[in-house]
């Protein structure tokens, strides 16, 4: 795998900063005859501030790779370094804490907390991270995604697109180093989905976060700096390699 120098906005820096570094990552489920190898030796290095699309057919291991890189799952083998933190050696609780301020996640089914308002949903990661004035920051994030007038609405009172905007605001609120988005438009119609993608990229530019998107859509993939294609648990093609 190529180790790219760390990127920096300072012209004096020559080595781009590496946000995601995965070496020989494997993931297997089950044992013995029931064992299934989902990822079979992924080597990956992603520069900070870049947008990367993860493409591949169903069952290729995209979601599993994203789960490992975002700290939602522990790899069976290999090393995973996310924004300077060695995710491979952490337990579940350590991963949860490590995600604070480092990783933001946007999922296909939005996964907002149904008993909390939009404002409260966005405030939760800030509160968990002990950040100052969480509600003020949350309100600003919601305004940034165009929901400044929906602060007190519950998820059931929001459309699908609006819910995904809330999810994006929540993912970005703590200014994480990396944003993972797993089929963010999968539950949305075409027009809405387009708006969400545009919003996602706009927010990425503002926050300078690294963005990794799982998608089936080649057109969306082309909007990214780099396209990585997975098949049967291995990287088949990597435009950034």
């Amino acid at each position: 795998m190529n180790q790219k120098p760390a990127a920096s906005s300072d012209d004096a820096m020559t080595e781009p900063h590496i946000a995601i570094a995965a070496r020989n990552v494997t993931l297997s489920l089950g044992e013995g005859k029931a064992r299934v190898d989902i990822l079979r030796g992924i080597d990956l290095s992603i520069e900070a501030g870049k947008t990367v699309a993860l493409l591949g057919p169903s069952g290729s291991g995209k979601s599993s790779l994203m789960a490992i890189l975002s700290g939602l799952e522990r790899a069976s083998g290999g090393t995973v370094n996310i924004a300077g933190a060695d995710f491979g050696t952490m337990n579940e609780d350590q991963l949860a804490v490590a995600r604070r301020g480092r990783v933001g996640i946007v999922l296909q089914a939005f996964h907002l907390l149904p008993t909390m308002t939009a404002l409260e949903n966005v405030a939760v990661p800030l509160e968990l991270d002990g950040q100052h004035q969480p509600f003020k920051v949350a309100a600003q994030e919601l305004a940034a995604v165009g929901l400044g007038d929906r602060l007190g609405h519950y998820p059931t009172q929001l459309s699908g697109g609006e819910q995904q905007r809330v999810a994006i605001a929540r993912a970005m609120a703590s200014r994480p180093t990396i944003i993972f988005a797993d089929e963010p438009t999968g539950n949305l119609d075409g027009a809405t989905g387009e708006k969400i993608i545009t919003l996602l990229f706009d927010r990425q530019k503002v926050t300078a976060a690294t963005l990794l998107i799982i998608t089936h859509d080649p057109e969306l993939a082309k909007r990214c700096d780099r396209i990585i294609e997975l098949r049967d648990g291995v990287i088949e093609r990597d435009s950034g390699a």
Binding site: L72, E92, D93, Q94, A96, V97, R99, R100, I105, H111, L112, L113, P114, T115, V124, P125, L128, D129, R170
Partner: peptide, 16 residues
């Protein structure tokens, strides 16, 4: 379950 998993994604550990 969904809420618990979401909270964990957002940084809540098991003690929380």
């Amino acid at each position: 379950q969904g809420a618990i998993a979401t909270l964990k994604i957002l940084g809540a550990d098991s003690a929380m």
